[in-house]
Write a protein that binds this DNA or RNA. Sequence first.
DNA 1: GCCTATGCTGTACTGCAAGTACAAACTAGC
DNA 2: GCTAGTTTGTACTTGCAGTACAGCATAGGC
Lengths: 194, 194
Amino acid sequence: MRQVPAKLAAKLYGAAELIAERGIGDAKIDEIAEAAGIPRATLYYYFTGKDEILAFLLHDMLDLVAGEVGTAVAGTGTARDRLKAVVGAQLSVMLENPAVCRALVGELGRASRLPDLAKALQMAFHEPVERLLEEGVEDGTLRKLDNPFAAALSVFGAVTVAGLTHAVAGLSSDPATVANEVCDVILGGLQTET
Amino acid sequence: MRQVPAKLAAKLYGAAELIAERGIGDAKIDEIAEAAGIPRATLYYYFTGKDEILAFLLHDMLDLVAGEVGTAVAGTGTARDRLKAVVGAQLSVMLENPAVCRALVGELGRASRLPDLAKALQMAFHEPVERLLEEGVEDGTLRKLDNPFAAALSVFGAVTVAGLTHAVAGLSSDPATVANEVCDVILGGLQTET
DNA sequence: GCCTATGCTGTACTGCAAGTACAAACTAGC
DNA sequence: GCTAGTTTGTACTTGCAGTACAGCATAGGC
């Protein structure tokens, strides 16, 4: 895969909706080319095929998530506050790029075939959250859990599915509201005081 | 789609691994036929194409989930206990059918294109959980939340992603352990007492 | 035991879309 | 205006999904 010029990358996003809607398998390369406003031959000049186009889009978005999440983690405040910020950051990116985000989830099941993608996801979200959980134990704002790895997984799931559902259904698309709803559950828990 | 005989359905599960691994788009119909031990022509006798084969497998598993979850919801005990049972039920089915489960998630992004699938998922998990949350408020074992719909979504996400990750990675595949980890987070929450 | 309806399977064919090849046109730096 | 790299149009090859259909198997009625 050649170095993709920024101008071309921007145009590619014009095809994200199509890919998300029909899946990479059912979207014809000619349609992608047309939707993006890029000649077919040019696509093949930069990418070896459809899959690589998809991989490029996904990677691009994950970089975005990783950046925002990184900023949130590095911010000031308690670990709990920063965890909230992380959730908000991920949801912001997701809801601002609903099409790419849908495409991403559509390929999640193939994660084992796309080790790069799985790793990028890990770096972008999972690892920072796990670290925050540890810091929260230290500063006393988060509860100590038996299995922080599993906890980070659950947090990731809750955030991702919430984001995806809103992205697909186009529900109340305010990231802040969604973030609050998710945080309410994962921070406060569902049960009454024991 | 013709009525599929049980014997044939059972054989089809032999191809689930292949489909999950390569995605329905990249799995050739001849390979599916071979993996399942069913002649190609017979597949086309029962199904109109690849997509229908996938849809059949997914629907089959969702029925399974719906059944188990239904049993768990209808059981005895507090709403909180039954919520735990629901989580356990979903994880059991997922970890017993990791391949189909991966295939399902691989097609989640297309949910908007497969309204049947989205609806089945809704019925199988989301709706029962939302109901349990209400009952929990009544019997005092679960906290009253601003937005039970969003909460059910988060629960679904946490459970599904945990199940999927274990299914894909083949981690500690004991459903009960995974269920405990997930429940610990979603019931108890992450934050310390305020 | 035969006959008929329906289920099942092998084989040959069609059509579509992915990907390739390549030459012509364009652009930028020198 | 020469050269190296980029961009695009067009024509071609190939592989797979899906179709058509004929022949074989099986079961149930008589």
